[in-house]
């Protein structure tokens, strides 16, 4: 039970760090990869919270489709935030 709390605190830490990273990053391509990392960690957290249905949705949509849609939009516009 103790290592479980350790694991969860580590995952929440990664979550916050990647959110701050993707907000602060000037290169939007890197920022989008940060949001993909948020989605993967969230999917693990949903699994630990006994919600396998939601974990499956988040893994398919957050990590794959949402990231790709952002990447296409960056390709059609500017990559760098000035």
């Amino acid at each position: 039970m103790d290592w479980m709390a350790f694991l969860v605190s580590g995952l929440v830490l990664i979550l916050i760090i990647s959110a701050v990273f993707s907000i602060m990053q000037k290169d939007l391509l890197v920022a989008v990869i940060g949001t993909a990392a948020i989605s993967v960690v969230l999917s693990i957290l949903f699994y630990l919270l006994q919600a396998p249905d939601v974990a499956l949705t988040e893994a398919a949509i957050g990590a794959a489709l949402s990231t790709i849609i952002f990447l296409i939009a960056i390709k059609k516009t500017d990559r760098f935030e000035e």
């Binding site: 959110a19 993707s22 907000i23 939007l28 920022a31 989008v32 949001t35 948020i38 989605s39 969230l42 957290l45 949903f46 919270l49 006994q50 919600a51 939601v54 988040e58 957050g62 949402s66 952002f70 939009a73 960056i74 516009t77 935030e81």
Partner: peptide, 28 residues
Amino acid sequence: VKKNLLKIVIGLAIVDSGLNLLFIAIGY
């Protein structure tokens, strides 16, 4: 705070993720 439109959309996506996590955590 951000002035870049894509950054604003990224922020909205992050708010969305946070709300989803909050809902699931309440039901645990």
